[in-house]
Structure formats: structure tokens, C-alpha cells
Computed example of a mutant assay.
Amino acid sequence: MSPRGVAIPDLRDRLFAAAERVVAREGAAALTSRAVTAEAGCAKGVLHTHFAGLDEFISELVLDRFARSARHAEELSGRVGHGRVADNLAEVALALLDSLDPAVVGLAMTRPGASLHTRQALESGAPGFAAMQQSITGYLEAERQLGRVAQDIDAVTTALALVGAVHHLLMTRSPDAPLDARDTTERLVALLLGDGSQRVHTS
């Protein structure tokens, strides 16, 4: 437990990780500000000192994970010409799919305050699905110039379809069936690339 008045390094990350552990272990109903701070080993009032309330905290957790996925998608630019295109895209898509526990997503969608805060942040330019789509579009256009994808591929629409589908899976999948969503994502990547006969190799 940190003494009063002593700054806690990486507090946001610590609270976010604690929240994810609480949800994974006990379910969404167990996520309270007190449960989070207890799990994180912080004073009871710390969460409300840094966030307006639990709704904002949940929203900021979701936005943080979206931003992390957007940064991961940016790394595609360094993979141009390397590896299989389907593998590179699948890795990014699956990273987004695995970025949040379905129960956390459910909280962000069903709590009006959290949902509103998330939507307003994304509309204001917080990194999320639009940034991922832009990174994937740029990657596909670069791979097309190298002849590693079909010359007639519509990079913008393909990126939109991939990000939109994974977004749908992320927001609607059941905690009891994550593997079905992963399989769907891999098959979608192959379909969008016109590569349905080849398996996507993911670890």
C-alpha cells in the first residue's frame, strides 16, 4: 500500500491491469472501484482521484487498449515485403481481438456513461479503429506496389472490411467462445486477400 501523498509510478497501467485481473477472475459484476484499488494495492480513493468515476475509468481502459492496438497496426509499415501478407494482417487483427476481455467490452457498451465517454473520445481523434484502418490501408498499398497482393485490390475497402469485422467480433463475442472469433478472423483475412485456399500461419 502506498503512503498518502506518494506518487505511484505508472498508476494508470497498474489500475488498468488490476481491473482486467478482477474481471478475468470474478466477472464483470465484481468490477468496482474498491475491487480495482484493492487488487492494485492502492489506497481506496486513488481511482476517483484520477478518474471522474468508474464509468470514465472503464472507458479509459478501453481507449488505452484501442490505442495500443493502433500502435501495433502502425508497425505494419516495417513489415512491407517481409513474411506473408495474410500472416501480417492476421497478427494485427488478432492483437485487436485479444486486446480486451469480452466482459470489459460489455461493461463499456452497457454503461451509458462509459459508452458516451468512449464515443466522444474516438470522435475527438483518440487513436482507435480509424487509425488502424489507415495503417492497414497504407500497408496494403505498399505491398501492392511490390506485387505481393493483387494489383486490383481495393486497399481502402479491404482495410475497412477487416477492421470493421474485427470490431464487430470484439464487441459482440461471447467470453465462452473466443476461438470461434479467432478462426473467423483468420478466414476473413484469407478471403479479403483472395487467398482462401491458403492457411494463415499464426502462433
Rank of each mutant, 00 (worst) to 15 (best):
R148F: 14
R144G: 07
V85I: 14
A67E: 13
A73C: 05
R65I: 07
A43C: 09
A30L: 08
A52L: 15
T157M: 15
V105Y: 05
C42G: 01
A165V: 00
L162I: 04
G83M: 07
A155M: 09
L97A: 02
A155S: 10
H168A: 13
S99M: 00
A108C: 03
E91D: 09
L89A: 10
A159E: 03
R65E: 11
A40G: 12
G138C: 11
S69D: 14
H72V: 12
G113D: 06
Y139I: 09
Q145H: 10
G41W: 05
L122R: 10
H72L: 12
L170K: 04
H168K: 12
R111G: 04
A70D: 12
A30E: 08
E74S: 10
G45T: 01
A93D: 02
F66M: 08
V156F: 15
G78I: 06
A95C: 07
V80S: 04
R148M: 13
H82Y: 02
T172G: 00
F57E: 01
L54E: 07
L162A: 04
N88T: 09
A40Q: 09
L146F: 12
D101P: 09
H72I: 14
A70R: 13
V92F: 07
A70P: 08
G78T: 05
L61M: 04
S124A: 15
V166M: 12
K44S: 15
G128F: 04
A131H: 03
V92W: 06
G138Y: 06
A159I: 01
A95Q: 10
Q151E: 13
G78M: 00
A86Y: 06
D154E: 05
E75V: 14
H50G: 13
R71T: 10
A38E: 12
L100C: 01
G138Q: 01
G164S: 05
T172S: 08
G78Q: 01
R34S: 15
T118R: 07
Q120D: 15
D87F: 06
V156C: 10
A130C: 10
T118H: 06
L76I: 11
D101F: 09
R111I: 12
C42V: 11
R148Q: 11
E39N: 14
A130Q: 07
A150Y: 01
F129L: 15
Q133P: 02
L94S: 00
H117L: 13
L61I: 02
T110L: 15
G106L: 12
A30D: 12
A159M: 06
G81M: 03
A161L: 02
P112H: 05
L169H: 00
T157G: 13
M171E: 02
A159R: 05
Y139H: 02
E91L: 07
E141P: 00
S99N: 00
S33L: 07
D55F: 07
L96R: 09
L100N: 03
E141A: 05
Y139V: 01
E60G: 03
R144D: 02
E143H: 00
A126E: 12
L96N: 05
S124P: 14
D154M: 02
L61G: 03
A93Y: 11
L96H: 03
G147K: 08
A52Q: 15
A43G: 13
L97V: 10
V80E: 08
S135A: 15
A70T: 12
T118E: 05
E91N: 02
L116P: 04
